[in-house]
Design a protein around this nucleic acid. Structure first.
Lengths: 133, 133
DNA sequence: CGTTACGCTTACGCGAACGTAAACTTTGGG
DNA sequence: CCCAAAGTTTACGTTCGCGTAAGCGTAACG
């Protein structure tokens, strides 16, 4: 029970994805489930990777960018040159994310202000008092 | 000179997009340049909208979501019901952005840690001292 | 033993967001 | 006057991230 293998169906239920999606990610070499006969079996490592994949998608990263990032989490059979390259790519992603973080902060502030303004105008137009939240 | 109209080429150079992109956004009703004869001319309002469009794209919003948000910035010929609907949609986007902001913060922290770990391992493997920045 | 369920592979389809090519008009230069 | 540049429309092509359907294997259920 140290491995806790899951079928594709269990994975789909747990992560709210379709079988097609999991097979697609596998085809793109983002996850590598075992094969028990024909069937796929997903272990803890696969689930960790899937979590990172879905997170990365939410930030608008492409599957290829995510794949590169995932290499960082696999202290596997890479030589130093490859690892150094992976780290470099990861640093670029990190920079992207930090820039996006700052930009998002500003955009949130802007949007809040604009919504407030719009609400104020609407309130004056209707002559009613609108709720704020 | 109060309007500062720009040609499509000037817009492309200024915002690093292609003519195709600008025409595409216009077809999707995200921007509405004037027509001087056949040619398009972009004013300050178009540029402000384009800035918001490109920003929205960086956050992974679809052009349709962005279009809805843009309505918020146009105190135009909408009735109260439409404005209220627009505000509602905008609040949903705002919630999305705030969630993403928090998640991004965590992801940045995670990635930093992972990069550091990976670097430390690489340093031990090579026996060298690696730079951090 | 049939059929139902689940999974597999193969492959075509699709919406989003443009790229790219073709053919036409307009405008300015030599 | 001719041509090249810039812009326009129309329309088909492309990449990404899957959806969806067809057809096959096999394991379980009644």
């Amino acid at each position: 029970m140290s491995e806790q293998l899951m079928t594709i169906r269990q994975m789909c239920d747990a992560y709210d994805v379709t079988p097609r999606t999991l097979r697609f990610y596998e085809a793109r070499e983002l996850i590598f489930p075992e094969r028990r006969g024909q069937h796929r079996l997903y272990d803890r490592r696969d689930r960790a990777r899937l979590t990172l994949i879905l997170r990365g998608k939410r930030f608008g990263f492409s599957l290829e960018q995510i794949r590169q990032l995932l290499e960082l989490y696999e202290p596997g059979q890479h030589n130093q040159t490859q690892i150094a390259a992976t780290i470099k790519v990861a640093r670029e992603r990190l920079t992207d994310m930090e820039r996006q973080y700052a930009e998002l902060r500003d955009a949130i502030a802007d949007l809040k202000t604009t919504i407030d303004d719009s609400e104020a105008r609407l309130a004056r137009a209707t002559g009613n008092t609108q709720q704020t939240g």
